[in-house]
């Protein structure tokens, strides 16, 4: 651990060489030093050197834009592969995408412009100061109607409540309070997205039962499926 402890999915094929005129891109998303980032491998599988790389995003739900220029050595020679990291900012133009976390990307080089789309794991958009004040949490929990509460289950989870607390905290999901009621651990948690949406949660964990009950409360119901997936990914990986 240390440098990058947030849950980072394995790299996926974003642009196969067959669609990129020899350019292949594998990638994933992570979070480092308070910023989301794209972590990619560019490979030149063409028979000519590639130069002039640049990247652009279409408008997206969270206003993600590249935070710097793409750094690829020029030229990228035939058979050469290079790992590169692109820091992202969340201060760009916003347009709601379906699914919400969809991101359309354009990459250009001296040969052509290539397009692909991917989905951003929403946990890379959980900010470091997402710990809600306890008093505000209680008021907000009460304030959000039960129609805005969605329950789900996380199966096959073998973490203790302490392990879950620390693993979730490394991913910017903060435990505001915890109680043990009749042997069941109840964790009250908060997270905040880069666009200032708050999500409150309750985790019910029983040491004798690998199924965890997750209840999410937020005024922005749209984000719930992505948050449920993030909890699953973080707790099971």
């Amino acid at each position: 651990g240390g440098a990058s402890e947030v849950y980072t999915p394995p790299k996926q094929m974003w642009l196969p060489a067959s669609k990129g005129k020899g350019l292949e891109i594998l990638g994933t998303f992570s979070r480092k030093q308070g910023n989301p980032q794209m972590v990619m491998t560019f490979s030149n599988k063409a028979m000519q050197p590639m130069t002039g790389f640049a990247v652009q995003f279409n408008k997206n739900s969270f206003g993600l834009v590249p935070g710097s220029a793409l750094t690829i050595p020029s030229p990228l020679s035939p058979n050469q592969s290079i790992d590169t990291t692109l820091p992202l900012s969340a201060n760009g133009p916003i347009q709601r995408m379906d699914p919400l976390t969809n991101l359309q990307v354009a990459v250009k080089n001296c040969i052509d412009v290539f397009y692909f789309s991917t989905t951003v794991p929403i946990n890379v958009l959980f900010v470091e100061d997402g710990q809600m004040d306890r008093k505000v949490f209680l008021a907000t929990w009460k304030d959000i109607p039960s129609s805005n509460e969605v329950q789900s289950q996380i199966s096959n989870c073998n973490l203790s409540s302490e392990q879950a607390t620390s693993r979730l905290q490394r991913n910017n999901i903060f435990t505001v309070a915890n109680r043990n009621v009749d042997g069941q651990d109840m964790l009250y948690q908060s997270l905040r997205l880069t666009n200032n949406i708050w999500v409150l949660s309750e985790l019910k964990m029983n040491p004798d039962n690998p199924t965890v009950q997750l209840s999410l409360k937020t005024r922005a119901l749209d984000v719930i499926p992505s948050i449920q997936k993030a909890y699953n990914d973080i707790m099971l990986n």
Partner: peptide, 21 residues
């Protein structure tokens, strides 16, 4: 301190009200 105690109590009540019997 009293405020903290109240908050502790509120979380205990919340947890009790939501725990499965």
């Amino acid at each position: 301190e009293d405020d903290d105690g109240d908050l502790d109590d509120c979380f205990s009540k919340l947890a009790e009200s939501r725990s499965n019997p």
